[in-house]
Design a protein around this nucleic acid. Sequence first.
DNA 1: GGCAAGTAGTTGGCATGCCAACTTGTATCC
DNA 2: GGATACAAGTTGGCATGCCAACTACTTGCC
Lengths: 148, 148
Amino acid sequence: MALEFESRWMTAWLLLVRTHTRFWDQIEAHMRREHGLTMARYDVLAHLDMAGGRLGLSDLSSAIALSPSGLSKLLDRMDASGLVQRDPDPDDARAAFATITPRGRALARSARASHHELLRATFGSALSDRDIADLTRIMKRVDASLPG
Amino acid sequence: MALEFESRWMTAWLLLVRTHTRFWDQIEAHMRREHGLTMARYDVLAHLDMAGGRLGLSDLSSAIALSPSGLSKLLDRMDASGLVQRDPDPDDARAAFATITPRGRALARSARASHHELLRATFGSALSDRDIADLTRIMKRVDASLPG
DNA sequence: GGCAAGTAGTTGGCATGCCAACTTGTATCC
DNA sequence: GGATACAAGTTGGCATGCCAACTACTTGCC
């Protein structure tokens, strides 16, 4: 990010971006190293598992904030890896479901445990209850200020 | 992100990721729409301009948090667009500088003004001084808890 | 001097994800 | 009932960015 220090909020913004990126990269690396998953794949598996094993592609697409075409290609790769499977929707011939496989489910669960452990060990334990409350308040304000 | 609500910090983390992503996408779209630049290109131009117009590739690479190979290819594209130029380092035949062109500099400056305006209009004005101070404190704590 | 080790940058190959265009199927409206 | 608008997914093409391997050069050590 640019090295601009004209104001307090600019400094805070640059710090936010840098910290978020560093943390995210670490989480991504951990997921890859320990479970052979990208975060995109983990998100798909976690959502499917939580939803009972199956979700419509449109729902999944918005749940994980991925474009329809991006999801389509991601599911191709995950299908090839034996983690998910596509099923047609009997009520709408245009639509389809993604269904988690037993192997995908097992992976989702072990990855989830270790992912949460990592988050707790860094994000969770570095911050006090007040920090968490402040951060939540601030993010809600930013979120509310965004269009859409 | 997964829809997991086991703890306050998990909720805060998911909110942070979602908000950050939404905000970032908006900034990126604004930069593209108003100036025809990606944020990666803007970062290069902003750093070069602030550094007086020229930086060594290694320095630039770490300043904008891009891998050497990623920077190399980015500079190829920006060179083709007439925004930057490569110059050899007379003191080290392995090394090179990136130099901003007059066109790149003009673009950097107008993009910078409008980029800051956008940030102020959303991030800056949605948050109080106390929010900014809290956010800075929290991000420093997270940053300090990361390895490296 | 001269070889080993390290450094700067580039290239090839791959993964990811977007948009635009397309195909197929459903819904609406007359 | 049939044209027309709309919706779900897929595909092709492109941009981006990483890692591994490579080239070329510089440094350290003897």
